[in-house]
């Protein structure tokens, strides 16, 4: 078992270096190798997606067969999966029936969930003032309310200073928010580079089995 760990680390490092080198070194065989490895990654990702779907089906199949609490919904899930798999797999993703399933089931369901979120967030904002009344909560609630008020006219009325390209809402959205977003993006980029280097150096082994 101890031999497997260094071997898998070696494979991971080798392939990572080859792909990284393909980005910076313009060598035909290296570029081809780079492209091949990327294609293998695409295939593995697609296979991982299929494995996830299979695992989901097996879990819900077990739950539906054991008559546990919520087994009905598991059965509905499995049936829906089978129907969609059959229809879309046979007719194609752009076929009429496939689009009918998508337009009449998936889109309304997900849209309804998002619409419920509006009511929940409104109610949560109302209770946030009572539960945690401090400076940060007040800033948070105030920023949200100003943004909402400035994004659209108040009952059809444009308030100068609040609405417009140079309104208060635009000022908040483009200056402090963008500044924070830039910092987040920089942090994400740096974290991504650091994680890649750790994998290439063998310090981080997410593939340990």
């Amino acid at each position: 078992m101890k031999i497997k760990v260094p071997f898998s680390a070696a494979i991971a490092i080798l392939f990572g270096l080859l792909v990284l080198a393909g980005y910076f070194i313009e060598i035909p065989w290296l570029s081809d190798l780079h492209n091949m490895f990327l294609q293998w990654a695409v295939i593995l990702a697609a296979v991982a997606l299929l494995v996830g779907i299979a695992n989901l089906a097996s879990v819900h199949w077990t739950k539906a067969s054991s008559e546990q609490n919520g087994s009905f919904y598991s059965a509905v899930l499995i049936i829906s999966l089978l129907i969609t798999l059959i229809v879309v797999g046979y007719l194609g993703p752009t076929a009429e029936w496939s689009l009918w399933i998508f337009n009449n089931i998936q889109v309304p369901v997900e849209s309804s969930l998002l619409a419920i979120l509006v009511v929940v967030l409104t109610y949560a904002a109302m209770r946030l003032i009572r539960r945690r009344l401090n400076l940060f909560s007040i800033i948070f609630i105030g920023t949200g309310l100003i943004t909402l008020l400035g994004i659209a006219p108040l009952f059809g009325v444009v308030i100068p200073g609040l609405h417009g390209a140079f309104g208060f809402r635009t000022l908040i959205a483009q200056i402090p928010a963008v500044a924070g977003a830039r910092g987040i993006l920089l942090g994400v980029a740096l974290g991504t580079v650091a994680t890649g280097l750790r994998i290439l150096m063998g310090a981080d082994r997410p593939y340990r089995g």
């Binding site: 003032i129 009572r130 008020l149």
Partner: peptide, 26 residues
């Protein structure tokens, strides 16, 4: 856009009024 301009302020006013009521009750 019309529905959007009426719906957003309504939500904002609901948040304000509900928050004030909760503060008073608390």
């Amino acid at each position: 856009w019309d529905a959007y301009s009426y719906g957003i302020p309504t939500a904002v006013f609901l948040i304000l009024i509900g928050g004030l009521v909760n503060i008073v009750l608390a």
